[in-house]
Amino acid sequence: MKASILAQINHFGQTPKQLFQKPHPQRRTDRKVLPHPLRYSAYLTHQEIRKTTSSVSQIVTYNDKILIAAANSFLKPVNYSEYISWGFPDRSLRILTYDQDKLVSTHENLHGGSQIQCTGVSHDGNILTTGGDDGVVAVWRFFKDGTRRLLRMEKALCAHTAKITCIYVSQPYSLIVSGSDDCSVILWDLTSLAFVKQLPRFPASVSALHVNNLTGEILTGAGVLFAVWSVNGDCLAVVNTSQLPSDLILSVASTTNSDWQDTNWYVTGHQSGAVKVWKMVHYTSDEAANSKSKSPPSTLGGMSLNGQTQEYRLLLQKVLKAHKHPVTALCLPPDLKQLLSGDASGHLFSWSLKDDSFKVS
């Protein structure tokens, strides 16, 4: 008997007779589940939380702080203590501190005689991408030479035929997405810096790009056309957001909280000042069946999808009206406590749910 017990201990380890002296505490059932602000967008209320003198081009939440970038500026990860600025008469790109606007470094002739139009930075802050009015997407790496901070060109990505209007860098999916005035969106591999795919040509200049770093979905805004694409460049859903051709999409955003939360919610910011909330549903769902559009189109707004029909529909849930100027930036913080929107006049609004305004079912 003793030998068999010792053999069992040698093979499986010794199990204590009693591990706990007290009963396990009961599970908490009163824990409050944070409601999704877009799911309950009908109950969102707005509050102006900041006013700046310049257009808001980017909104970032970091350590419970809300950081914003002005026009022709981009907040630099990882800690967002610096920002990148461009559009100067000497066509230089400058890095400045966020708190005091102190000049850190100046970089000239990044696009020769062409002006920089937009930038994107990898999440670790080491890779910088710049898009110029020469149609080139340039990829740079930050490095230090003693006390000097320099940029080393990794590669010039050439495929667009007009100026670059927007760039997004997604390090989790090793992806660079660039949009241009030539109505094209191109996917590039961040590691090999090689061409991956060009999306179907859009009917208008591409004005907004976003990559969901949780799902890999690519959001595009071109004219009034809003589309959601898979990380492989397949069109999941597309919709005309407005009956007015002048109500351009200027900003897009999506939920990146966690995979157990709803990730099929999207927000678009428009030239008219409207903020529109969208939900993506499968075309066979009851919600899609009850919508006005009965069949998913293979062409929409002049964009050819090569006869392919989308598996999902984008349904308008709510139009949020508070801005009197074009909505140029959107942000859905990971904690889902609020939706942040900024406009061309420097107004920053927070959209949140009041505890007593609704009841979560």
Rank of each mutant, 00 (worst) to 15 (best):
T220F: 04
R28G: 10
T53R: 13
P333T: 08
W188A: 04
V275N: 05
Q198Y: 00
V267D: 01
T191M: 10
L199N: 01
H160R: 01
C118A: 09
T15E: 12
P203D: 04
T161Q: 13
T129H: 01
R94P: 03
Y266Q: 02
S295M: 12
G131F: 09
V137M: 02
L44D: 09
S361T: 13
D343I: 03
K359P: 00
I186C: 07
S357G: 02
V211D: 06
H11T: 15
N213M: 09
L250W: 11
I59R: 05
T191I: 10
N72C: 12
T61L: 06
V238W: 01
S41F: 08
M303C: 15
V360Y: 05
T130G: 06
Q26W: 03
L340T: 02
T220I: 06
V327N: 08
K324M: 11
I167G: 07
Y312G: 00
D234V: 10
R31L: 14
A237Y: 10
A159M: 10
F195S: 04
V277Y: 02
L96Y: 13
V238P: 00
A162C: 05
R28E: 12
I9Y: 12
K197V: 01
V267G: 02
Q317K: 15
L93V: 15
K102D: 14
S350M: 07
D64S: 15
L348Q: 01
G302C: 10
C235L: 13
L316N: 07
S205K: 15
N306P: 01
K292S: 12
H210C: 12
F12Y: 14
F358H: 12
S230A: 07
P296N: 06
L305A: 06
T309W: 03
Q271T: 11
H270D: 00
L339E: 09
L110K: 06
Y168W: 11
